[in-house]
């Protein structure tokens, strides 16, 4: 089931949440909506689900215009950041909810629910209440619940945002494998670029209500369309008028011919990686390289060095000036 989003706009009072958003999501794909908080990605997701209505534009779900269809009728599964568990119902009844209100026969419900609980490894918790589960277990239950009614589309709104870092990593992995097993068209929202890069088939970068770029993780990382995408997806440093990746910069002890001269102003060791700040012209440029590479150079703080950008490395013209140690917002630990 493919999703077509055409010309969608949404305001809340004076605030423009989304403006002229056009995205096409093919069937069976695992897509991430990635972007900073407040950028509009959750709003877009909720519009797809029917939990919000767009001010303008069209939503098509498998060729059917769903723009004004109530969420009940869209056959879309939704997983919430804070699980939205039905607190007074057992895990079993939670997962069975969608089937029960469709008045499916009891044996059918039993089969389906058991199947799903096994899929998410919660069979032994069937009779527990959600309050007796951990966060990670609750989210797996929420997923099973959403999948129970065989939705054409599965939407997840920052599904791992409320969980510990460790649990988050595990569930991230698990979601990817689940999708490989049950290839429902899936869209999930995240502000964590590592998560998007690791899990998604395709990423839609949304910032301030607009789509910045759409592409596979590799495409986005290797050929960022603009300043914002490059910054958001990985570490950057400024070389001249351009943004480059610190690990794409080569450090040379002697002039390779087309190198930029500079002096090492600071060296920071972080595990196996070295972060070297080089003062060059009127800039401070960050270069990252391995210990081995650095040792081979035989330089130290204060040494004159030459910088060169690796052949074919992505660059993007700067839109806002960058400090040497600019990195994307740290992932909440």
């Amino acid at each position: 089931m493919s999703i077509e989003i055409a010309g969608v706009g949404k305001r809340f009072g004076d605030f423009v949440a989304l403006e002229d958003v056009n995205v096409s999501i093919p069937t069976g794909q695992l897509t991430a909506l990635l972007g900073p908080s407040g950028g509009g990605k959750s709003t877009l997701l909720r519009i797809i689900a029917g939990l919000e209505e767009a001010d303008s534009g069209r939503i098509e779900i498998e060729g059917v215009d769903a723009t004004h269809v109530a969420p009940q009728k869209r056959n879309v599964g939704f997983v919430f950041q804070h699980y939205a568990a039905f607190k007074h119902l057992s895990v079993y009844r939670n997962v069975a909810f969608g089937l029960e209100i469709r008045r499916r026969p009891k044996p059918e419900i039993k089969t389906r629910v058991t199947e799903l609980l096994e899929l998410v490894h919660l069979e032994q918790f069937a009779d527990r209440l959600p309050s007796q589960l951990s966060g990670g277990q609750r989210q797996r239950m929420a997923l099973a619940r959403a999948l129970a009614v065989d939705p054409g589309v599965l939407l997840l709104d920052e599904p791992f945002g409320a969980l510990d870092a460790q649990v988050r990593k595990e569930l991230r992995d698990w979601l990817r494998r689940l999708h490989d097993e049950v290839p429902v068209t899936t869209v999930f929202v995240t502000h964590d670029q590592e998560e998007a890069l690791e899990v998604a088939d395709e990423i839609v970068v949304i910032n301030a209500g607009r789509v910045e770029q759409v592409g596979s993780p590799d495409q986005l990382y290797d050929t960022p369309a603009n300043d914002f995408v490059m910054r958001f997806l990985g570490p950057v440093t400024q070389l001249g008028p351009d943004l480059v990746r610190p690990h794409d910069l080569e450090l040379h002890a002697t002039d390779p011919g087309d190198g930029l001269p500079g002096t090492i102003s600071r060296i920071t060791r972080v595990g196996f990686e070295l972060r070297v700040e080089v003062a060059s012209a009127d800039q401070v440029v960050l270069v990252t390289l391995t210990r081995t590479e650095f040792a081979a150079l035989g330089v130290e703080q204060g040494s004159p060095v030459y910088l060169r950008l690796a052949h074919g490395a992505p660059t993007v013209p700067v839109q806002t000036p960058v400090a040497a140690l600019d990195e994307p917002d740290p992932v909440p630990a």
């Binding site: 689900a49 029917g50 939990l51 109530a70 969420p71 009940q72 009728k73 879309v76 599964g77 939704f78 919430f80 804070h82 939205a84 568990a85 039905f86 607190k87 007074h88 909810f97 969608g98 209100i101 469709r102 929420a142 619940r145 959403a146 009614v149």
Partner: peptide, 27 residues
């Protein structure tokens, strides 16, 4: 009462009345 619980029920196909009867009222 958290709003997303009602939204969850809606996304699973429950009408406003069903949501009230099965989800809100028990709480």
């Amino acid at each position: 009462l958290e709003g997303d619980v009602e939204e969850a029920a809606a996304s699973l196909g429950a009408s406003r009345f069903t949501t009230f009867r099965r989800i809100i009222l028990p709480s």
